[in-house]
Design a protein around this nucleic acid. Structure first.
Lengths: 334, 334
DNA sequence: CTCAAATATGTAATCGATTACATTACCATC
DNA sequence: GATGGTAATGTAATCGATTACATATTTGAG
């Protein structure tokens, strides 16, 4: 492999000049520039980026840590991140934690090792103190999730209010026995959506029945299994609010397998508005998050941090909205 | 940020010794080792990997180029790759080409820039000569797709025979007017599945009707739209073989929107066996690929190449199988 | 107790590009 | 044609870790 020295030798210039041509910086005569370009061409030279990285101490790469790469919701956020990254000449590295909090903490080490210039976490199971300490030293942005009581830059929706909105919709449709398939309680997102659910019940004077809240893990299977449990109750729910669409679809399937109809016997509402929510039959009523935009904003924020700019608006809350489809059985708007 | 020099100074040893402790190589007294570890601890030292990369000229990172990260099929292959990579201490970088052949060629440059030690392509739209030249110089593996007439290491299923198998299944169920929603003709996968479709027809003496073959792009939308076209034919098909599950689901939706029933009016078969194929109603009959295993094998192959081992079995064809569900309307086995 | 071998540690070159600083070449002005 | 300023190019240090080679220290055999 040809190195910058070989090019310099062949073009009869110093490595400094070659570097100047490469970076298109400094003053280089058109003539020498041509000579260098010819040498580059002739040797089929490609600059070794490792050398540059080391010297400049930046890699123009960011790492995105995703809890589950098979979840289409995250792929869409990722697309937003990629779009902005590409535009600014940054590469996107992807870390899949497979929902393992420990793996997540490991990814954090990539930063002090200087392997990437910054990180975006689409998950937040890391101990708060550790995360804060890192965020103080390195560019870190949280997206979708957040950590309570920190000022780590964050882009997300207001999960509590949207969960409330979803639950209220079911209440307005006349439901009183509303179950909730929650996300894992060790992620803030799961807790927030549960909180929104409770708030809606309380505001409408409905007593919360602990038996109607089941903790899942955002997977189709967990939605399916928990719904079977709910249906086995002496007094089963007439509506189910699932903390994401995959669990909602799992719920619908379970209801059907038990011979019930959706929405006639049990109404279902999901969360995220993944593509399948609109394709599935019945189409799933859900909360639509501005996924692409979340990704964009998160990457923009990260770029600010990397460039050392002072960021005034560190916490962004983007608008979401309820998309009413068939699975809830009513067009009543909130 | 503390560097290896700081650690060396604090522990009163040379950088060489610190490096030896870090890499756990060479002979170091237990006592000095402890001193070094203490210094590392005290300074909260993290080795800068860029220095190591440059010196060793390897990054222990591989790049996986994916045509579409939102496609769940690829996420599953990716999981297989990740599993093996992690096991061997390799990082996985992800490149999403968004189905853009040009972007794909750009990723190829990452290799001579020494940014990664090897690449796995889950897509193959690059000009054959270019790809071959690169593969001669650097570790490259193709998975799922392949290039005709090269000996670039490849892991995939036999798409022709499985497409034939799927089509034959429909023939055995009594269908004669069988349509095919193909993948893009500029990817070999699209062409192979089409070829298998033609072979099956020919073997059973059925004339191929060009009007029954529609070229899509593997997206749900294209499946939907092309099916509407097929249904508008004077003599519409009684069965549709789609080149992937997403198009198959698009087809089912289109048939339904036109008032048809699946499988009663039109039978549908897909390809890939993504999770939604089994969840959707009617559940989609499809070809199941050993996704995880494809990923594993591809990564194992790549590791062989990176380590410079001579690889005897360069082209792996893994077994797939037809999963018969509801959308084809028959349990007749092939 | 001596000497060779084995073990432990240090010195300094190296990876490839970038860049601060130094030097040379060129040009315009008086 | 001397002077000063600018433009073009070169020299060499630098980034941080690794490692070939050199040196110092310890160990064991006789």
């Amino acid at each position: 492999m040809a190195s910058i020295k070989d090019v310099a030798k062949r073009a009869n210039v110093s490595t400094a000049t070659v570097s100047r041509v490469l970076r298109n910086a400094g003053n280089v005569t058109e003539e020498t520039k041509q000579r260098v370009l010819e040498a580059i061409e002739a040797l089929n030279y490609q600059p070794n980026v490792l050398g540059r990285y080391l010297r400049r101490m930046e890699t123009e790469t960011v790492l995105v840590v995703v809890p589950d790469i098979t979840n289409p919701f995250f792929s869409k956020v990722l697309r937003g991140i990629e779009a902005v990254a590409l535009e600014h000449g940054y590469q996107v590295l992807l870390g899949d934690t497979q929902n393992d909090a420990q793996l997540e903490e490991q990814y954090l080490n990539v930063l002090p090792q200087r392997q990437v210039d910054g990180m975006i976490f689409l998950t937040a199971r890391i101990r708060k103190e550790l995360m804060e300490e890192m965020a103080r030293q390195f560019p870190i942005v949280l997206a979708c999730e957040y950590l309570e009581g920190t000022d780590i830059p964050t882009v997300s929706i207001d999960n509590i209010s949207s969960a409330r909105k979803a639950t209220e919709h079911l209440i307005h449709l006349g439901h009183r026995r509303i179950a909730h398939l929650s996300g894992p309680m060790d992620v803030i997102l799961g807790r927030d959506r549960l909180r929104g659910y409770y708030q809606a019940l309380a505001q409408h004077g409905i007593d919360a029945d602990p038996a109607l809240v089941q903790e899942g893990d955002f997977s189709y299977e967990s939605g399916y299994n928990m719904t079977l449990k709910l249906l086995a109750l002496e007094e089963p729910p007439t509506a189910i609010f699932a903390a994401n669409d995959e669990m909602a679809i799992g719920a619908i399937k379970a209801i059907r397998h038990r011979g019930g109809r959706v929405p006639d016997d049990v109404a279902v509402v999901g969360f995220d508005d993944i593509q399948m929510a609109s394709i599935f039959e019945p189409a799933v009523t859900t909360i639509a998050q501005p996924t692409f935009e979340i990704g964009q904003k998160a990457m923009e924020l990260l770029l600010q941090l990397i460039e050392g700019n002072e960021v005034s608006r560190r916490q962004l809350v983007l608008p979401d909205h309820l998309v009413i489809r068939e699975s809830c059985g009513g067009k009543c708007s909130v």
